[in-house]
Write a protein that binds this DNA or RNA. Structure first.
Length: 232
DNA sequence: ACATTAATTATGT
DNA sequence: ACATAATTAATGT
């Protein structure tokens, strides 16, 4: 196995209250894995034998509808736990987790979950905080889907992407930190890739965004906020 | 106001 | 050269 440094976990919320030796214990109980882009870490309905921490990369949480349509329900940025079915009282995963980029993950057996909650101060409260955050975001998205028009939904989706995993460039613009196709954006917003393509082209002409294949860069975040319907 | 269909072009290994 | 991604116009609900 590899030599992972304690400093990897120390700053992350679920572990921030723990001592060096406690973090060492946790690391020794973990196995680390490199997941190629496009690969599923686990699939919806699988027995939840493990829970995970994402050290690097971005997770795409995906569900499949009856007719085989993919729906992207959320993205998870580096530094967060995922696959935490035990925290939800489930023994199977509620959705599929795909690698939106190459991933570096840590993995523990779910048997250890109750130990973690019991032994490590702040672990439970911090993880339930992120779980709460996620359900809140998903509720916002449901409202958004029902009330907003596609242009605003796509604007919101792009804003969420750069808020989570935006990389600031030299000229002040912000680039999405992992590969995103128009298909992907359409699957986050419940539209088609054609509509996304047309809108991105239009926004490119007005200088709001700029995009290459699988790369989207926001040049004027404020204009996107305006388009997202952030008034009331 | 948006999806669907289809044809065409661009881009990355 | 091949597969995947993106654009664009036309037509449909």
């Amino acid at each position: 196995m590899h030599k992972l440094d304690e400093s990897l976990l120390a700053p992350l919320p679920p572990f921030s209250r723990l001592s060096r030796t406690q973090i060492r214990e946790i690391l020794d109980a973990a196995s680390s894995h490199l997941i190629p882009v496009g690969t599923a870490v686990f699939n919806e309905g699988d027995k939840a034998d493990y829970f995970y921490l994402l050290l690097d990369g971005t997770i795409r949480v995906v569900r499949i509808t009856e007719d085989g349509e993919q729906v992207i329900s959320m993205h998870i940025p580096a530094g967060q736990l995922f696959g935490i079915a035990p925290a939800l009282g489930r023994d199977t995963y509620p959705a599929t987790s795909m690698a939106a980029s190459e991933l570096l993950i840590l993995r523990w057996s779910t048997r250890l979950w109750t130990d973690f909650v019991a032994k490590y101060d702040g672990f439970a409260t911090e993880t339930y905080k992120t779980v709460g955050q996620r359900v809140g975001d998903m509720n916002d998205r449901i409202v958004e889907m029902a009330t907003q028009h596609v242009e605003q939904r796509i604007a919101c989706a792009l804003l969420r992407l750069i808020n989570q995993s935006g990389v600031k460039r030299a000229d002040g613009s912000i680039e999405v930190g992992f590969p995103v196709t128009r298909q992907d954006v359409s699957q986050m917003t419940g539209t088609t890739l054609h509509t996304v393509s047309r809108l991105l082209s239009a926004w490119e002409k007005s200088g709001i965004v700029s995009s290459k294949r699988k790369k989207i860069t926001i040049r004027q975040p404020h204009q996107l906020v305006v388009l997202s319907g952030a008034d009331a």
